[in-house]
Design a protein around this nucleic acid. Sequence first.
DNA 1: GAAGTTGGTATACGACTGTAGACGCAAACG
DNA 2: CGTTTGCGTCTACAGTCGTATACCAACTTC
Lengths: 217, 217
Amino acid sequence: MVKSDPPAGSRAAKADATRAAILASARKAFAEHGYDGAGLRGIAQAAGVTAMMVGRYFGSKEGLFGEVVTDTMRDPIILSAGNLGRADLPRAFAEALVGVTTQGQTPLDGFLILFRSTTSATAARIARERIAQVHHATATAAIAGDHASERAALFLAVVAGVQIMRQMLELEPLAKAEPALLVELLTPVIASLIEPRTPVAEVQATISKGASPATSS
Amino acid sequence: MVKSDPPAGSRAAKADATRAAILASARKAFAEHGYDGAGLRGIAQAAGVTAMMVGRYFGSKEGLFGEVVTDTMRDPIILSAGNLGRADLPRAFAEALVGVTTQGQTPLDGFLILFRSTTSATAARIARERIAQVHHATATAAIAGDHASERAALFLAVVAGVQIMRQMLELEPLAKAEPALLVELLTPVIASLIEPRTPVAEVQATISKGASPATSS
DNA sequence: GAAGTTGGTATACGACTGTAGACGCAAACG
DNA sequence: CGTTTGCGTCTACAGTCGTATACCAACTTC
C-alpha cells in the first residue's frame, strides 16, 4: 500500500499498526458473529488493545463496520477482474467460487460479513449499498445481452447461496464435496445465467406453449 | 385442527391460544431480527403477554426457537410435495421459488429464520440439522441420477441465494423484477441441476438455433 | 530540560438481555 | 360453601452491550 508514508519506526507507524490490527480483528469478528454478535471488547482484545480504542479510531461501532466493509471490497472477491476475459467464463467463475468457498481457504469474506449482519438495520443498509454498487455493478458489466442486470443479480444469488451453504451453514454434502465435482456441477448453472444465448423468454414461450403460467400474482 | 381436543371454550383453550400467539409472534420476530436480535420481551409483548410466559411454555429461548423452526417446517416451503410429479419439474420449482419470494407475499419463511440466526451457535446447529434432515433430504429424494446429494445441495443453495437477495438484502434488480422474467431465467438454472441427463437448456438451444449445449459432466 | 502532544488504559454509566422466585387472581372441583 | 389448580404478572438478578469521561505514560518539539 503506497497510500500514506509511515514516517519511520515510531509513533505514527504504531498508530497505523494498531488501527490495522483493529480492522483485521473486526473483519474476522464480523464475519464470524455478524454485526450485532460481535462485541467491541472482543474485537479490541483480539487486536491487543482496549475497547475504547475502536471508539477513538473509528468513532463508533457503525463507523468501524462501514470501514471494514469498504476495506473488504478491495480484496479478491469472486468477481475479481483477473477472471474476466478468459475463454471459458462460466467455468472460470465456477472455479473461483468453489476455490473461495473451500473450507479452510478464506474463512472470512466480504459477502459473509454482509450476510451475517443483515439483522441490524444500519448494517443491512450498508450491505445493500455495497453489494449493489460494487458486486452487482461489476457483474452486470461482465455480462452482455438482454436483462443483464437481472441475470447478474441471479448470478450473485447463486454465489451467495453457495457461499452460505458451504461456509455459514456448512451443509455437509457441499462442505465435504470434491471441489472438482462442484466445478463440474456449477459450470452449466452459471453458464445458463451469464450466457444468454438468444431471447430466452421467446424460446421458452414457444416451447411451453400451453403450459400453465401460474405466475400471476 | 384435529390435533388435540380443546376441551371447551374455557381455560385450557385459552392456554393453547396464548401458546400459539407466542409461537406466531416468535416466528415473526425471529424471521425479522434473527435469534440473537429478537428479544423475549418484545416477542411476549407482541403476543399480549409477559416475557416470563415464554419461559413457562417453552422452557427457554432456545426451546422456543427450536419449536418455531420445527413448526415452520410443516408450512408450505419451496419443496412442497405438491410440486413434485409435475411434468416440467424445473419450471415448477422456479415458479414456486419466485412466488414465495415475491415481495409482500410471504414475509416470513423458515429459510429466512434459519439464515438470520446463524450467528448464534445453538441456533446455527438447529438450522444445520433442520435443513439437512428436511430440506436436503426432500430435495435429494426428488432428484435422480449421479451425485443427487450434491446437486440437491446446490439446488438448495440457489433457493437460498434467491431468497436472500430478494427478501433479506432486497437487491433492487431482483426485488423489483417481473416474476415471469425471473421464472424464465431461473428455469434453465434449476434444470441444469435437477435434470442431469436431459437438460432443458440443450433443448432450448437446439430449437432456437442449434448452439453448443456445453453440459458435459 | 521543560512543555505539549498523543497512543493507550481504567472506571463507570445507562440500557438492554435471558432467566429465577414470589405472588395474585380467576376458574375448576369437592 | 371452601379448597385447590394453574395461567399470568411483578420484581429482581447477574451479565453484557456501546460509549463517555478522566487519567497515565511515552514520544516529540521548542
